[in-house]
Structure formats: structure tokens, C-alpha cells
Nucleic acid binder design. Structure first.
Lengths: 164, 164
DNA sequence: TATTGTTATACTCTATAACTATA
DNA sequence: TATAGTTATAGAGTATAACAATA
């Protein structure tokens, strides 16, 4: 049986606080990325993910899994980034079906240009009122929540539907 | 002087955990609202805000302030909701410039229909791994962050970055 | 047959600026 | 002049389904 009784007020408050903070933070970050580097949030996420990967290279599918996008959405974003010269796309050598996305020097440069402002926004809006213990608590609690979510993935994160 | 030194790893982890959890939760909620009631997230937010107001009535401006939207965005959403019969719009009696948005019975019904699933998703993905102490901690910490955000000076006040 | 990725299409959402009208 | 809201426009993002190519 699924529990659909109303949330008690304390739970509701916690949920609303999370949503509120996330929304305001996302909004501020979006502004900053656009102003400092002409990047949208999804574009920044892709570039940042690539920058974290060995040689700045990733398969499309691996990128799509790490982020929340659909494959077609990622194709669109990758095309935008390629047009802007921030990434390149090429077939994988070992599997001709796969496409390897690679961060270019220009891509790295944009990321480099954008990071200070990004950090500044996160610090100013999110980290300022948090002490060490708060950081620990947030990480611990949200880490547990994230694990829970990953073990019960939302519909969009499900593997692609197999044809019948 | 703005601090743009890199975030220490623990701070970064906390930030990423927040973003991750918020993104996954938003995505799951979006799916559920669409499936159970044909509502988008912004539409649900507006209906829920109205349901919380006395008589289910609010001025457009007050709605826009509570949510994060621009006025034109809210006008668009209100028009969609009105077309669907879930709200009505009428000029305020005391100020002819203002528009009062009112939740209809149909609007209340949709909200009623959607809430159990909404609660179930929030509970399953977010609340399940949280104890009482976690709820308290989250609420306290994020409450402080939210207060900080609302009082933080806008970034536009800062001097513009030098051209490259 | 399954997997990887793209394309075609259609729609939602959002922001900016110009506009109307009321205060 | 300032405020409340709408409209026109234009663009970005997304998902779904159909498609091609490779494994």
C-alpha cells in the first residue's frame, strides 16, 4: 500500500524549504552563467562534466546518464556547443555507434572564465550562513536522500524502452 | 572584495548534493503532476498557492512575487489555467489596475486529485530516509540559507568584469 | 534484435520590450 | 510618474516517435 496521507507540517516545511532554496539558487546561477560566459545551465553542466573526465572526453550516453536529459535533448545541446566551438564530436574507434564528445581548448577557456563568478554566487547565496557542522549535516542528509532516489529512479532515468 | 577562491571539496560536495536532489525531485514531481492531473509544475504551484490563500484569491503581482516568475510569464500561465477552467480572473474592486485570480471548484478538484500522488512521490523520494532530527536540521539550515538569499545584494551592483 | 545517436515535430516555458489602463 | 497587467515576439529547452547505423 502506498502512503498518501497528508504530510505533517514539519515535513512539508522541510520540503518547501528545499524547493525554495534550490529554485532561487538555480535562478541566480543561471543569470551568472549567461552574463559571464553566454552559457545556459545545461551547457555549463555538460562542459563541467567533460572537464571532470579524463582527457575531457565522454560518450553521449554516459553524459546523458550523468545529467538528467533525454538523448535527443543532449544531442541538441551538444550541437549547440559544437557550433560554438566548445566541444567536438567524433565516432568512437572501438564502437562506431558511439559518439565521443570532447572539450576543446575554447571550451575549457569559457569554463575557466565562468568559474569565479559561479563560485562567488554559490558562496554568497548558499555557503555564507553555513558553518562546518551545517555542511556536514547537509551532505550527510542529502547524500542519503540521493541514494534513495537513485535506487528508485524516476521515469525519465529508466533505460530506454525496448521495442516489442 | 569578492571571494572567488575555489570552494573547498566539502562545500562543493554539499552544493552538488543539493543540486542533485533538487533536480531529481523536481523531475519526478513534474512527471507525476502531468500523469495524474495534466498539470505542469508552474500551473500546480499557482493552484497550490491559491488554495492556500483566503477564499482562493490572489492578486497577479502577489502571485508573481511568491513564485519566481516574471509578470508576463504569470500572465501566460494564468491564461492557460483560465482556459482550462481552473481559475478565473477579474479586476479588483478597490484598484482597477489589479487583477484578482480566483481558484474555481474545478481547480480545487484537480488539486485534490493530484495531491495524493504528489505526496506519495515526495515521501518516497525525499522523506523516506529522513528521521525527525534530519527534518529539523534540514529545515533549520535551509531556512537560514533562504533568509540569506532573500537579503543578499544583487550581483549587478558589482563592477563589471574586464573585457578579454 | 538491441543499442547508440540523430532528426522531425510539436509544444511549453520564459524573457524583453512595447503597450494600455489606472493611480 | 509610477504601478498593474497584457501582448507580441522570439528563442531556448524538452520530449516523443520515427529513423539510420552499428553491434
Amino acid at each position: 500500500m502506498t502512503d498518501t496521507a497528508p504530510l505533517d507540517p514539519r515535513q512539508l516545511t522541510a520540503y518547501l524549504a528545499l524547493k525554495d532554496v534550490a529554485a532561487l539558487l538555480e535562478h541566480a546561477v543561471e543569470q551568472q552563467l549567461k552574463e559571464d560566459g553566454g552559457l545556459t545551465t545545461p551547457q555549463f553542466q555538460i562542459l563541467a562534466t567533460l572537464a571532470d573526465a579524463p582527457d575531457g572526453r565522454r560518450r553521449m550516453t554516459d553524459l546523458a546518464d550523468g545529467l538528467v536529459y533525454s538523448r535527443s535533448g543532449l544531442t541538441y545541446q551538444a550541437a549547440q556547443l559544437e557550433k560554438a566551438g566548445l566541444v567536438t564530436r567524433a565516432s568512437a574507434e572501438d564502437d562506431e555507434r558511439s559518439v565521443i564528445v570532447t572539450l576543446t581548448e575554447a571550451g575549457r577557456a569559457v569554463l575557466f572564465k565562468v568559474m569565479p563568478g559561479h563560485i562567488e554566487v554559490v558562496r554568497r547565496l548558499f555557503l555564507t550562513p553555513l558553518g562546518d557542522a551545517d555542511i556536514t549535516a547537509i551532505t550527510d542528509i542529502l547524500g542519503r536522500v540521493r541514494a534513495q532516489m537513485r535506487s528508485a529512479p524516476p521515469r525519465s532515468a529508466k533505460p530506454r524502452r525496448t521495442r516489442s
